[in-house]
Amino acid sequence: MAVFLIAHVKVTDDAWVPAYAEKVHDIAAKHGGKYLSRSGNITTLEGEKPDSTLVALIQFPSLEAVKAFANDPEYAPFGKARQDGSVSTLYVIDDTDLAGTIPYLPKASG
Rank of each mutant, 00 (worst) to 15 (best):
E46Y: 06
P106W: 04
I42N: 05
K67L: 11
S37F: 02
Y20Q: 10
A21R: 10
T101L: 14
H8D: 12
M1I: 12
L5Q: 11
A68Y: 02
S52C: 02
F4L: 15
W16D: 03
I102C: 07
N41G: 00
L98P: 00
A70N: 13
I58H: 10
V17C: 10
H25E: 10
G110D: 12
I27C: 08
K49P: 01
D13V: 00
E48N: 14
S86T: 12
P103M: 02
V92N: 00
K80A: 15
I93K: 08
P73N: 03
A65K: 09
I93L: 13
E48A: 15
S62F: 02
A65E: 03
T96L: 00
Y20W: 06
T44G: 12
E74F: 01
P50L: 01
H25I: 09
E74G: 03
F4G: 04
G110K: 13
K49Q: 13
A70Q: 05
G85M: 11
G32D: 02
Y20S: 08
G33A: 10
A70H: 08
G33V: 11
L54F: 15
D26M: 11
S37W: 00
G47A: 09
E46P: 01
I58K: 03
H31G: 03
T44E: 00
V92M: 00
P61T: 03
H31L: 12
T96V: 10
P73E: 02
F78D: 03
T44F: 01
K107D: 03
G79W: 04
I58W: 02
A76T: 11
A21Q: 10
V55K: 01
V87F: 07
S37Y: 05
Y91Q: 06
F69G: 01
P77G: 08
G110M: 08
G85H: 02
L45S: 09
D94G: 14
P50Y: 04
G32R: 05
L63M: 12
T12S: 09
